Computed example of a mutant assay.
Amino acid sequence: MTESRCGYIAIVGRPNVGKSTLLNHILGQKISITSRKPQTTRHRVLGIKTRDQIQAIYVDTPGLHRGQKRAINRYMNRAATTSLRDVDVIAFVIEAGRWTEEDAWVLEQLKNYQCPVLLVINKVDKLEDKAELLPFIAARNSEHNYAQVVPVSALRADNLTALEQTLDAYLPEGPHFFDEEQITDRSMRFLTAEIVREKITRQLGDELPYAMTVEIEQYKLERGVTHISAAIYVERDGQKKILIGKGGSRLKSIGREARLDIEKLIDGKVMLNLWVKIKSGWSDDERALRSLGYDDE
């Protein structure tokens, strides 16, 4: 009989390399929100995948970045680095054909940890000349002794099975920590707030890059319908006007997209109410961050 295995795999990298997309495709379900804007992921999110005797617990982390100007940036870096303390293996995600100063900085941080580091080269489908991949891998291997190098395309789900099998080999023998049906450690309230934030980021990423957050004020099931009230916090009146849009059009569009995704997530009917509120300076106020759910996990 095969021994059961269970362990933690941290997915790390600079912002916008496709970490959340990678996790969602591995799980076959969306639990981490995605957008083209850097730093979309703000919290540590566990994604749990149980296959036969193996339970892989993926830790999706905010993108590690050098800029720590505001409290929220410092929070995201703390969330990412504390997630690395007790993991069994690290999947360091970079973009094919692109090595930046930020990537080099992340690599320096990873040298502080004892566990094996796999280099996951994402977005290989975007390489126009596939012959560039081998010299790119050779250059990366000359900088650090990676346990293994695995090229993938998270978006197209290319080579993900091979990546999973490679990572599984580093998981220790032992009992499973979570029920085999469980897919994340996060609550429905959290996932709902994240879906609303994703829709805002996708529609208004340029106008409201980091000055917005979402808090669920009500979440209850009544006669087969889930009633959700969400407060969207911005820092200034001008941002509130942008978010609401002409005649409330932008807010309605965000609400419609979010409701459809939430209905898919919970497999049921949803009544979603969105409110926009001003909380000036929340993103640079440690106390305000904690009250809005940005606590060190």
Rank of each mutant, 00 (worst) to 15 (best):
R36H: 15
G13S: 03
G18V: 02
V120Y: 00
R202G: 11
D267F: 15
L163C: 06
D168T: 09
K246T: 11
Q29D: 09
K252L: 10
G293N: 10
I228L: 08
V270D: 13
R197Q: 11
Q114K: 07
K126W: 15
V152N: 01
N24V: 14
R250G: 11
I254M: 15
D158S: 10
K123C: 04
M271K: 14
T61K: 02
V120W: 00
Y170Q: 07
H43C: 09
E215G: 14
G255E: 10
A211D: 12
Q29N: 15
T100R: 04
G13M: 00
P116H: 03
I262Q: 08
P15I: 09
H176Y: 08
A288F: 05
E3N: 09
N16H: 07
W275A: 12
Q203W: 14
D296H: 12
F177G: 03
G293F: 04
G97W: 08
V45T: 05
Q203Y: 13
F190E: 01
V106S: 01
Q68Y: 06
I200C: 11
R156P: 04
K279E: 08
T61I: 05
M271P: 10
G47Q: 06
I244H: 14
G247F: 14
D261K: 10
L107R: 00
I90F: 02
G47I: 03
E164P: 03
N77Q: 12
E257F: 09
V234A: 01
I54E: 04
G28Q: 04
V276L: 13
L251C: 14
P151H: 02
T100D: 05
D185K: 01
G248N: 13
S291Q: 13
M212W: 11
T100Q: 04
I33T: 05
L251K: 07
V12R: 01
E286H: 10
A139R: 06
R74E: 07
E132F: 13
V87R: 02
I195W: 02
I121P: 01
M1S: 10
A230D: 08
G238V: 03
D158N: 13
V120R: 00
T81C: 05
G28R: 03
E3C: 12
V93E: 00
F178L: 05
L110S: 02
K126L: 12
E235G: 05
E102V: 02
D267A: 14
S280D: 12
V17N: 03
Q203F: 08
A104N: 03
K241R: 14
V152P: 00
A211R: 15
R156V: 04
C115E: 05
I26Q: 03
G7H: 04
N145C: 14
L134Y: 07
K240E: 10
R5D: 11
I94D: 03
A56G: 05
Q109S: 08
T2I: 15
A79L: 15
S249Y: 12
D179H: 11
L27Q: 13
T2A: 14
